[in-house]
Design a protein around this nucleic acid. Structure first.
Ligand SMILES: [Mn+2]
Ligand SMILES: [Mn+2]
Ligand SMILES: [Mn+2]
Ligand SMILES: [Mn+2]
Lengths: 217, 217
DNA sequence: TATTATTTTTAGACTTATCTAAAAATAGTT
DNA sequence: AACTATTTTTAGATAAGTCTAAAAATAATA
């Protein structure tokens, strides 16, 4: 139906879109391509009524475009669960393979995969998996940077999927489900001292903390 | 590494190649494309040393090209086993999805899938799955048309994967593992009366019989 | 062997997705 | 408001894969 490239653009617009329009440059950055290429592609997506576009005003997804994007996200995350749960890959390995698998076209396949995996609600990074109707489980997670001192939290997700970051977390004993609390916040540089419930205290820089998602328990 | 199209051409050449050269027209037929397009692609594959090619003399795979083709076949068949065994699709449904999945690039993925499936030797149509080194299990199957009267055989495979054919077999109670013998052969039109060990006698036309593979037991 | 039929290749064009360089529009700043 | 900086779009090219129509080579037949 749609090319890999078109699907990847729609997914990128979905990811970057925070209510409003997505800029050409932001999209070029996300897609690792040039602004000129983005403008070309946006025009094509607009022709096909997958996006709303006005020159110099940025793009947003149409309902049709959102459906496609969400279905790609659903496929991506279900495949990640398969790779993690069934083939026992690490959470830092699954994203790259899922980037390819997300483009396999077969509704029946993804339905059966969903059933085979027992209808998982979250992927190995804690991201919610939309259901067949495109509905996401509402998540009431907060960034670790916004956590309060001396309260109990559980790590529920990460917003950076790079192997470097995920391997680092593993080394520090941080994984989804890890219980922790904030011992101290360095107001000057935003770094945090964490207390793991089952383990030591560890220090994390601000950048890492923005990519760690937690929920109060 | 190689594009889907290149992989599909190499797979097609592998399939059609019976020792000797594959003709441009045969390849065009197999690829559902025109002879002119085939010539263009063959030139590109030849540049990349994936095939041996001389103008007007047909193509054959180089060692390098064979390796690629066999790895695609391996992936195709392993994915078919996954779809059939784990997701419980019918043998008439798996081929089309495997046509897409065979192009996913990750050695680690295919190795783990192989292990997850318990190193299967045959796909749901009875075709042998090459191992990591590209070796196929030798099969001593014969076409049903070559079976002798009143001897016991077991159905081990099919050489046509079209849903129409496979659904027909199912309707007649024929599946891999079905034990049978030949009651009668009509010398005039090549049709055969089969006796199913656990079931009725059934009649099959010659064309069907050429696509059914059996082994004496 | 000469003629005809078939197969294969070339020539030239089209589509998709990308690029660089330059022009146009918008945003930011005196 | 005028100038500058940034963003976005256009213009023109390129590469992959495909097509039709025509030419060239090979095979088949009289
Ligand atoms: Mn991912
Ligand atoms: Mn992708
Ligand atoms: Mn198949
Ligand atoms: Mn294929």
């Amino acid at each position: 139906m749609y090319s890999f490239t078109e699907e990847n653009y729609l997914k990128a617009i979905f990811k970057l879109s925070d209510g409003g329009e997505v800029s050409t440059n932001a999209l070029a950055e996300e897609m690792n391509t040039r602004a000129a290429s983005v403008t070309d592609m946006i025009k094509k997506l607009s022709e096909k009524e997958l996006v709303d576009y006005e020159k110099y005003k940025g793009v947003s997804l149409s309902d049709k475009g959102r459906d496609v994007a969400v279905s790609v996200v659903r496929k991506h995350r279900l495949w990640e669960v398969f790779l993690y749960d069934k083939l026992e890959f690490g959470w830092e390995e699954v994203h790259e393979m899922a980037e390819q698998l997300e483009h396999i076209q077969s509704d029946a396949l993804i339905d059966r995969l969903d059933a085979f995996l027992n209808y998982p609600k979250y992927d190995p990074h804690g991201d919610p998996i939309p259901d067949k109707q495109g509905k996401f489980a509402k998540n009431n997670f907060i960034e670790l940077t916004k956590a309060e001192k001396n309260k109990a939290y559980v790590l529920t997700g990460v917003s950076d999927h790079s192997p470097a970051f995920l391997k680092m977390l593993e080394k520090w004993g941080l994984a989804i489900g890890t219980e922790l609390s904030v011992n101290d916040i360095n107001e000057f540089d935003g770094s945090i001292e964490l207390q793991l419930k089952e383990g030591n205290a560890i220090f994390l820089g601000q950048k890492s903390c923005t990519h760690i998602l937690v929920k109060a328990i």
